[in-house]
Every structure is written in C-alpha cells, then in structure tokens.
C-alpha cells in the first residue's frame, strides 16, 4: 500500500474512519439508510480539513445524504469522499457537487459486488464449516464462524479505506488541474442516475392487493393490470412525486416521511394493499 505518501495525521484520520465506519448502520433509517453513520465516519476529516465553521456546516449537510452500500465496501467510498473533501477545502472553486455525484455513483456498483462476494459466497462458506463443526459438538464453531467471515471482511475494510483515499488524492487533484473534473462528475452522475433508477425499482415496493370482484368472481386483478401498463408504475410515480415535492416545492422530508407512513396505514385500512 502506498502508505508512505500519507501524512501521519492522515493515517490517523483513516484509522478513526475505519473504527467509526463499523457504526455505519447503527441508526439506519428507512428514508436515508446509513446517512448518519456516514456523517459520523466523515466527521474527523471534516473537522481536520475545514477551519471556517460555515464551510464545516456545509460539508456536514453534504455528507448527511442518503447512503447505502455493502458494509465491507463502505470504507473505500469513504476514503474517496474524504480525499475529495480535502480538495474542496484547499481549492476555492472546487465543484462541491462532484463529491456527492461520485459518492452516489460508487455505492450502487460496490453494493452489488460486495453483496455477492460477502453475503452469498463468504457467509455460505463460513456457515458451512461452522455447522459441521457444531454438529460434531465442537465448541469453537461460533468462533470459527466469526473468524472465517470477519478476517477477510475486516481486511477489505481496513485496506479499502486507505486505497480509496490514496486513489482519490492522486487522481482527483490531477483531474481537477486538467479541468477534467466536470467531465468525471457528469459521467459519475450518469452512472449514479442509472443506479438510482435501478434501486428505485428494487427497493421501493408496492403491490395492490385489492381486486375488482363481481358476484364472487374476480373480474379485474388490479396489480396485473398495472403491470401491463408499466411494471413498477406506482413506486415510480411515488418516487417522482417525492422528488418533485422535494426539489420544486421545498417540502421538508419530515412531511414526506409522515405522509408515507399515513399513506401506508390508510391504504392498509382501505384494503388496497
């Protein structure tokens, strides 16, 4: 690892980030997932890079955005994000929007890789070994299970954070100097938007249970009909409505969250879903 290019302070910050990133999903919320955990992991960097309290607040608001990825992969993204915050702190006309664009474009792909490698493969291996040990009465089974799973995961987390930060520090400032950062931001935003579209379909779920019944016979299956018009139409419309209210009407997410909770209970009471 290119440790020698990092200053002592930076190494210390990265270690702090590693420990804090364990808590990424401690207070996970339905609307913003690991936003507060990401913020918590970023705070040491924000405090170190920014001296002006207003800049600090701006960075804190920026890092409190929606975040959801595979936990093993998260320090890598945090490393890159931290290196961009550093650029933003030192260069006055840095485009701060590019930070969230790149952060967002990374979390989708890395969630895909991380989930299949760690959830599907590694966990199955660890559980398989541990189950056979436990069945033969070996008391070390749970410990072996935790070790097989956690040693690779922690290695990826530890080195991933450093790798992300070093990559970010080397390339982001080069791109910035060439004036190519806007091109990267646009490309990252495209990747991000495609992933957000894909995630909208996967994560925002709604199924209509209500069917039109005439004389004891189901004459119209509502969900089937909706699917024929466009699959996932209702979640898409609800997401777009939230986006419209958020962007154009400046509605606070408080109202959106309570609105959706009430909506859920109402459609359940009416027997629609």
């Amino acid at each position: 690892m290119a440790n020698n290019t990092l200053s002592k302070d930076e190494q210390k910050l990265l270690h702090q980030m590693y420990w804090r990133s364990f808590m990424l999903y401690s207070s996970v919320t339905p609307a913003k997932q690991g936003a507060s955990g990401f913020e918590y992991s970023m705070l040491p960097f924000i405090n170190y890079f920014y001296k002006d309290p207003e800049d600090k607040k701006e960075a804190m608001v920026r890092q409190m955005s929606y975040f959801n990825t595979n936990l093993a992969m998260s320090p890598f993204i945090m490393g890159i994000t931290a290196s961009m915050e550093k650029e933003n702190a030192t260069k006055k006309n840095f485009n701060a929007d590019s930070i969230n664009a790149i952060k967002t474009s990374l979390m989708g792909p890395l969630a895909g890789i991380g989930d299949s490698v760690f959830w599907d493969v590694l966990k199955a291996i660890a559980a398989g070994v541990a189950i056979s040990l436990a069945k033969s009465g070996n008391f070390l089974a749970p410990i072996i299970f935790l070790l097989i799973f956690n040693i690779p995961v922690q290695a990826v987390r530890w080195y991933g954070g450093k790798l992300g930060y070093t990559l970010g520090s080397t390339y982001i400032s080069k791109l910035y100097e060439n004036g190519l950062i806007n091109i990267l931001t646009k490309a990252a935003s495209i990747v991000g938007l495609i992933m957000v579209g894909a995630m909208t379909n996967q994560m925002v779920l709604f199924k209509v249970k209500w069917n039109m019944v005439m004389a004891g016979k189901t004459v119209l299956k509502t969900q089937v009909m909706l699917d024929q018009i466009f699959k996932g139409l209702v979640p898409l419309l609800i997401t777009l409505l939230c986006f419209y209210l958020l962007k154009k009407k400046n509605v606070s997410i408080n109202y959106l969250i309570f609105g959706i909770i009430i909506l859920g209970i109402v459609v359940s009471l009416l027997g629609i879903a």
Binding site: Q33, V204, L246, I257
Partner: peptide, 8 residues
C-alpha cells in the same frame, strides 16, 4: 415505500 424519499 419509504426508500422513495431517499431515492428522491
């Protein structure tokens, strides 16, 4: 449905 807010 709540992830819709995060997506937005």
């Amino acid at each position: 449905l709540l992830p819709a807010v995060g997506m937005a």
